[in-house]
Nucleic acid binder design. Structure first.
Length: 352
DNA sequence: CACCCGTGGGT
DNA sequence: TACCCAAGGGT
């Protein structure tokens, strides 16, 4: 088929050189695939290289502890990925003698690995003829067939297209080439159609719709929460941090305690109330340290941070897993979300 | 199946 | 600024 041949030829000359290309270690390829979920290549590369140096094989990962794994993932986001990578390493060690399985039915059952990631791993590591449908492929195919619906409404159809196009003789290079095409030529905005090997096959281009496709879903505005945050010092000059529950947002990461500012409540009142409710201690809320705006996928937050002083009571882990007093020197050993890293940075700059 | 889950970069 | 969205999966 001309589509296959032209893509493979293009990939041979114009494909990207990436650290997880031209290797055959399914573990390393698996790690790359997980890190690349919803995350750009440029962001992933340094994490990938550090990760393989720290956890060179499945056994090393499986026998580490979760906090060490989360620390290595710190800043990458979607922390369930790290938890599932760790969990799956233990499953592979126990059920598959530490050898990454080659059967699709087994691979898709592993935590954190869905159909696209499984196809990515098996086609890349073992050259198995299994198709993929990631963000790049959805965009490329939506333009190729001039899809009139948003891709989310046509997932089954797009899988069928991806299946029918896949080159059974060169599945590895075909899948990788398809993703490279989406990443470098068939980009979201200003696609470089004149450089595209599929120019003459692309229905969107023929209809002059390449800048309008793929169609978008209409989205509702994100809710905005204001959070009061406490950096609490004790008489020894230590700082109180807590570890979040394993499930949910930023699961298992450490943070400075705080909570949502209610209506008709000042920031100071909120912080004092939240700390009493969550940690059962009485504090004195002092000067403002920093205010941070942060956008997550489904809401926005403003963190208003105050320096506080412990007055009375023994801290209790009521709405978290664990509480510790620590110091600015030791705090780097705990995994924190990015928003909290900026608070730590502000504390350092605030030091006398 | 609609919603949840981080962070950084582009427009 | 505000919004979109990246090598998606879990629930």
């Amino acid at each position: 088929m001309a589509l296959r041949r032209s893509l493979l030829l293009w990939y041979q000359h114009q494909g990207r050189e990436l650290p997880w290309r031209n290797i055959d270690d399914p573990y390393a390829i698996w790690v790359s695939e997980i890190m690349l979920q919803q995350t750009q290549v440029k962001t992933v590369i340094p994490y990938y290289q550090r990760w393989l140096a720290q956890f060179p094989n499945i056994q090393t990962l499986a026998t580490s502890d979760l906090q060490t794994v989360l620390k290595a993932w710190e800043g990458l986001g979607y922390y369930t990925r790290a938890r599932n990578l760790y969990k799956t390493a233990q499953i592979i060690l126990k059920d598959y003698r530490g050898i990454f399985p080659r059967e699709l039915e087994k691979v898709v059952k592993l935590p954190g690995i869905g159909r696209t990631t499984a196809g990515g791993i098996l086609s890349s590591a073992f050259n198995q003829p299994i198709s993929i449908l990631d963000g790049n492929v959805k965009r490329v195919l939506a333009r190729l067939v001039a899809l009139s619906d948003p891709p989310a409404k046509a997932i089954q159809f797009l899988w069928d297209v991806s299946d029918s196009l896949l080159d059974p003789d060169n599945p590895r290079d075909f899948n990788q080439g398809l993703m490279d095409l989406g990443a470098t030529i068939c980009t979201r905005s200003q696609p470089k159609c004149l450089l595209c090997p599929w120019l003459s096959h692309c229905q969107a281009y023929q209809q002059g719709k390449q800048n309008q496709l793929p169609m978008r879903e209409d989205s509702s505005p994100l809710p905005h929460k204001k959070i009061g945050v406490a950096v609490i010092y004790n008489n020894a000059g230590e700082i109180l941090i807590d570890r979040r529950p394993d499930k949910g947002l930023l699961g298992g990461l450490w943070e400075f305690p705080g909570g949502k500012i209610e209506e008709n409540e000042t920031v100071e009142e909120c912080i004092k109330r939240e700390i009493l409710e969550e940690i059962a201690i009485d504090i004195e809320v002092g000067e403002h340290l920093i205010t941070l705006d942060y956008a997550y996928t489904h809401f926005k937050v403003t963190l208003i941070v105050h320096l506080c002083r412990h007055v009375a009571g023994e801290p209790q882990a009521i709405e978290c897993q664990e509480i510790r007093w620590t110091t600015l020197d030791e705090i780097d050993s705990f995994p924190f979300p990015k928003a909290n890293s900026k608070i730590i940075e502000a504390l350092r700059n605030n030091q006398p």
